[in-house]
């Protein structure tokens, strides 16, 4: 474990806490894409299958369980909560997630480290996580004024992956033989997708104005 990876995990944890706080405090999920949340739950469930058969550390197990439960909780809020579910704008959240999930599954079946069920599903989760934020970014472009907490949520999500990039560079420099091409390439693409959001987020923050993404 290095500081970059720990900071990345904490940023990821914080992003989900910010999202849960926003939904719970405002009793509203306006601007939040249910599709992205469902994709994240699929990412966590397919990636953390090793919870069933291998133990790495208490930290590792706790964080995996937290990510699965918290994303499930967000989805419950948006789908079932009597007040919050009224604020979900399904007419705007229309990204065709199958256009993301199917190519990722086909790619996972062809490009992977091992052709076993758990390895293919794990690889699928790596590819899917790279594109899972797209429905959320599309929704932000459509809903003109993005509320601050939702903007912070997306910014923290991008920050977590950027910190993981630093973690991989650090591990390449300090751990001879450490190679994870699938994770590195997928993670770099994932961080690149955030770049234009980062640009508008920082610009709005510096000009002290509401964040709005150009459609």
């Amino acid at each position: 474990m290095n500081i970059f990876r720990f900071a990345g995990d904490m940023t990821h944890l914080l992003s989900i806490i910010v999202l849960l706080l926003k939904i719970n405090a405002t009793k509203s999920c306006a601007g939040v894409s249910l599709k992205t949340q469902e994709l994240y739950l699929l990412v966590f469930v397919t990636r953390y299958l090793d919870l069933l058969y291998s133990y790495i550390s208490l930290y590792n197990t706790f964080m995996k369980l937290f990510f699965i439960c918290s994303s499930g909780c967000v989805i419950w809020y948006i789908r079932e909560h009597k007040t919050v579910s009224q604020t979900y704008d399904s007419a705007q959240d229309t990204f065709r997630v199958l256009f993301l999930a199917c190519p990722c599954m086909i790619l996972a079946l062809t490009v992977n480290h091992d052709f076993t069920v758990t390895e293919v599903l794990w690889t699928f989760s790596i590819y899917l996580e790279a594109v899972a934020i797209l429905p959320q970014l599309v929704l932000l472009q459509r809903t003109k004024n993005v509320d601050t907490l939702t903007g912070n949520y997306v910014f923290l999500l991008g920050g977590y992956r950027a910190l993981y990039l630093l973690n991989w560079i650090y591990r390449i420099l300090t751990e001879p033989g450490y190679r994870q091409w699938i994770v590195w390439i997928s993670g770099t693409i994932q961080t690149a997708i955030y770049c234009d959001f980062f640009y508008y987020y920082i610009k709005s923050w510096r000009n002290n104005e509401r964040l709005s993404l150009p459609s």
């Binding site: 090793d50 790495i56 590792n60 990510f67 390895e119 794990w122 993981y164 994870q180």
Partner: peptide, 10 residues
């Protein structure tokens, strides 16, 4: 890489 590679990252 390959079978049994420890996936210690989240």
């Amino acid at each position: 890489a390959g079978r049994g590679r420890v996936k210690d990252e989240l």
